[in-house]
Amino acid sequence: MTDERNAQTRGPFARWWQQPDQFDWLTGYLRARGLERPTKLLMALISAALMLMAVATLTMHNVNWFVRATFSIAAVVIGLGYATLWLRGWPTQRQSLVMSWLGGSIIAVGCLMQPLPMLALMGCAATAILGGYAAFFHNTKAIAVIVAVGTAASVVCAIRVAETDGWVAATAGLWLVIELTLAVPLAIQAVVRTLGADVVRSDQDPLTGVLNRRAFYERASTLLTSPGDDLHLIVVMIDLDKFKKLNDAYGHLAGDQALTAVGWALRETSTSSAIVGRFGGEEFIVIDAMPAEEAEHLPTQLCMSIAALPQPVTASVGAAIVRWDSGAAMDDLIRAADAAMYAAKRAGGNQTRISRPARVDR
């Protein structure tokens, strides 16, 4: 948060440079909308294309055979390795970032080894593909690394072109390559950032800042398809006590302020992996995956954080906790948490109840 404030005070360039990595939210977005499989196939194809650099080394008779062999092996290992990684699953943020940098470096080195100067210079434009990848999944700093590598290789290749074809051809070729190297990733970044802003606006409840009902189900469905080791799923239903009386006594503005404060309290109390949503009216929901002991304490922590707000509001909190590998279905967990919440409300409110359903089949 401090970095964001500092960036805002330094102007638009600083805000652009400090943009956060978008790998996590974009991954969730693609999965939630059924685009995971085509994305994996496309990324595997792009990764596998790096192996073509090994084929290109066959024409580089001016390069020592050991260097050619080492480079070819590296290109095949990196290209095939990342293609396999994409086909078998989904890389982590770090793996994805390293792939973009390694891919850009492989292309740059391959171009520097190319004996034909103009072909080498034009080949540097291929780094724009990896720059576009970094722009799509990552941030400005990731783009800058690839652009720097591609530009450096382009300048070296342009000098070689100037020695054989003159400075006019070298300058024109260099300008074209640098233009592509910069324009492709920056254009993709602008589109994805605009998409991200629209996604955030369409997914968020405008009053409380948490997810709306539709977006909550999309994110939660993604969570349920990614089981973890020795963790428990917890679904927490929160319903504000006597909220109508608060509206009647203090007005709807006070009620809106209370809802906003509750949304803030739920986000602050939950972990960074939690999915927090508003189901409508004064009802909220939280889902998370955590160790059993932490899951046991979370409902009480949420209840206490709401009661501690300056607004005159408390909540009845119900939770359903199951092992992550229990085959739990979202609707069944929500029903169990909802029943526990109503039990807390019947007991007088401002308290919690926990349900531990047996195995729930999907």
Rank of each mutant, 00 (worst) to 15 (best):
residue 198 D to Y: 11
residue 198 D to L: 15
residue 199 V to R: 10
residue 199 V to E: 10
residue 199 V to Y: 07
residue 201 R to Q: 14
residue 203 D to F: 05
residue 203 D to L: 03
residue 204 Q to R: 15
residue 204 Q to G: 04
residue 205 D to S: 10
residue 206 P to F: 12
residue 208 T to R: 10
residue 208 T to H: 08
residue 208 T to P: 12
residue 212 N to F: 04
residue 212 N to T: 04
residue 214 R to S: 13
residue 215 A to M: 04
residue 215 A to D: 05
residue 216 F to K: 06
residue 218 E to D: 05
residue 219 R to P: 00
residue 220 A to H: 02
residue 221 S to T: 14
residue 222 T to A: 07
residue 223 L to T: 08
residue 224 L to N: 08
residue 225 T to Y: 00
residue 225 T to M: 07
residue 225 T to V: 07
residue 228 G to H: 14
residue 228 G to C: 11
residue 228 G to N: 12
residue 228 G to F: 10
residue 229 D to W: 10
residue 230 D to K: 09
residue 231 L to E: 11
residue 232 H to E: 08
residue 233 L to F: 13
residue 233 L to N: 10
residue 234 I to P: 03
residue 234 I to L: 11
residue 234 I to C: 09
residue 237 M to I: 14
residue 239 D to P: 12
residue 240 L to Y: 08
residue 242 K to D: 15
residue 242 K to N: 13
residue 242 K to E: 15
residue 243 F to G: 07
residue 246 L to W: 07
residue 246 L to A: 10
residue 247 N to M: 12
residue 247 N to D: 11
residue 248 D to E: 01
residue 249 A to E: 14
residue 254 A to W: 03
residue 255 G to L: 01
residue 258 A to S: 15
residue 259 L to N: 05
residue 260 T to S: 15
residue 263 G to Y: 06
residue 263 G to S: 10
residue 264 W to Q: 13
residue 266 L to N: 11
residue 267 R to P: 08
residue 267 R to A: 11
residue 267 R to H: 13
residue 268 E to Q: 15
residue 268 E to C: 08
residue 270 S to T: 14
residue 271 T to Q: 13
residue 271 T to Y: 05
residue 274 A to C: 13
residue 277 G to S: 01
residue 278 R to E: 06
residue 281 G to Q: 09
residue 282 E to G: 04
residue 283 E to A: 12
residue 284 F to M: 02
residue 284 F to C: 04
residue 286 V to R: 04
residue 286 V to T: 04
residue 288 D to C: 03
residue 288 D to H: 02
residue 290 M to E: 11
residue 290 M to I: 14
residue 292 A to Y: 06
residue 293 E to L: 06
residue 293 E to P: 00
residue 294 E to S: 03
residue 294 E to N: 04
residue 294 E to R: 00
residue 295 A to N: 00
residue 295 A to E: 01
residue 296 E to Q: 14
residue 298 L to C: 01
residue 298 L to D: 00
residue 298 L to E: 00
residue 299 P to I: 01
residue 299 P to H: 04
residue 300 T to E: 15
